[in-house]
């Protein structure tokens, strides 16, 4: 097994190349720029395309073009850049084009700052652009997962023909950890029935326009069926000390790393705290969250580096069965173990 100490941002490019990604179209933005830099270093070595586009808008439209040709293709950015990409992401969703978008979230709104936040949750998990669509969203919590989940994003994106996000943040993107490098993927799905290759047998149409109202409604129903199928098949979570937990902290990505430490601290004090970490944000782990009240859980605390975006989905999953709580930091601040532990003590009297 080959192992390397590397940044999360670099690990996502390793994952992309190992998954057979053939083209990278991007635009620099802190704290995601190392992804474009790594792509510019490694893609040409393997005859693959790297292009620094004129804008985020153009970059994502280029992704749309390459995806329509059947290539595994990606882009990466951070909040303000993701906002700009939303146009073409909607088109890709409407035309059922597989592609991977890495979002290394920074502080917002507006120019905000370059510190880590999780405030792109709504614009990434809920569709973001115009129209009735969803994207698959994977949320890595380590550099290893930046590699592994980028690979998985390509696989699932192809399987279901939709854009897939790797939703991360400034901490996971910038930090270094040891990454064990998997074997390169050597088998790729056949896209010949829909991809456009400039040959007599690939005169296909990549399209999201349906003038007839009934036709467009039917197309939308098809998309919704697909999203339901994804929700049935692809939910992924990590549970930590959840089996006997009386209190559960829910969080993803960077926040979940802190929660894990908090669980250890709480257990040392005799507090039965457990962690539930969604690895997929769409599909959302609705069932397991809905089951928590029936498992004797007395308190649920959602921890985010945002203003309460994930907690909305937690409460939808709980469906009023029990009240849940929220603790969030913003502006580039990562919640500390002690402040979360204090919040738990204060909320639940433990």
């Amino acid at each position: 097994m080959a192992r390397k100490l590397m940044k999360g941002n670099h690990a996502s490019i390793y994952g992309a190349l190992l998954a057979g990604c053939e083209a990278y179209y991007g635009y620099p933005i802190t704290p995601a720029s190392e992804i474009a830099e790594a792509a510019s270093t490694y893609f040409p070595k393997l005859g693959r395309t790297f292009l620094q586009a004129e804008s985020e808008v153009a970059a994502m439209n280029m992704v749309y073009g390459a995806a329509g040709c059947g290539l595994r293709v990606m882009t990466a950015s951070s909040g303000p850049g993701i906002s700009l990409k939303q146009e073409a992401i909607s088109y890709a969703a409407g035309a059922e084009l597989p592609c991977v978008i890495v979002d290394i979230v920074r502080g917002g709104p507006g120019l905000g700052n370059i510190g880590p936040e999780q405030s792109d949750y709504n614009q990434v998990v809920k569709g973001g652009g115009h129209g009735n669509y969803r994207c698959l969203v994977l949320a890595p919590a380590s550099c290893q997962e930046m590699c592994d989940l980028t690979m998985l994003a390509f696989e699932l994106s192809d399987r279901y023909r939709l854009p897939a996000y790797v939703l991360s943040d400034g901490v996971i993107g910038q930090m270094m950890e040891a990454v064990e490098l998997p074997e390169p993927v050597m088998e790729f799905p056949d896209k010949s029935d829909w991809a456009v290759k400039g040959t007599s047998d690939s005169k296909n149409l990549i399209n999201s326009i349906y003038l007839d109202h009934d036709e467009l409604e039917e197309w939308n129903r098809h998309l919704q069926d697909k999203y339901r199928e994804i929700a049935r098949n692809e939910v992924r979570v990590e549970e930590y000390m959840l089996e006997d937990a009386e209190y559960v902290a829910i969080g993803y990505g960077c926040a979940s790393r802190v929660i894990r430490s908090v669980v250890d601290l709480a257990r040392a004090k005799g507090i039965k705290l457990g962690m539930l970490r969604p690895i997929t944000l769409f599909p959302f782990p609705t069932k397991v969250i809905a089951s928590l009240p029936d498992r004797g859980v007395k308190g649920i605390l959602t921890v985010e580096m945002s203003n309460g975006q994930l907690v909305d989905d937690v409460n939808l999953a709980l469906c009023g069965k029990m009240k849940s709580d929220f603790y969030g930091r913003m502006g580039g601040n990562v919640p500390s173990e002690m402040e979360i532990l204090e919040k738990i003590s204060q909320l639940y009297g433990v």
Binding site: N61, Y64, G65, C69, Y91, S202, L205
Partner: peptide, 21 residues
């Protein structure tokens, strides 16, 4: 073969299509 594209973006999409093929 055809791509229907977003408003104004044809040269960007065409760039990637040409690079791919």
């Amino acid at each position: 073969g055809h791509f229907q594209v977003a408003h104004g973006r044809a040269p960007a999409v065409a760039t990637a299509v040409s690079r791919a093929n």
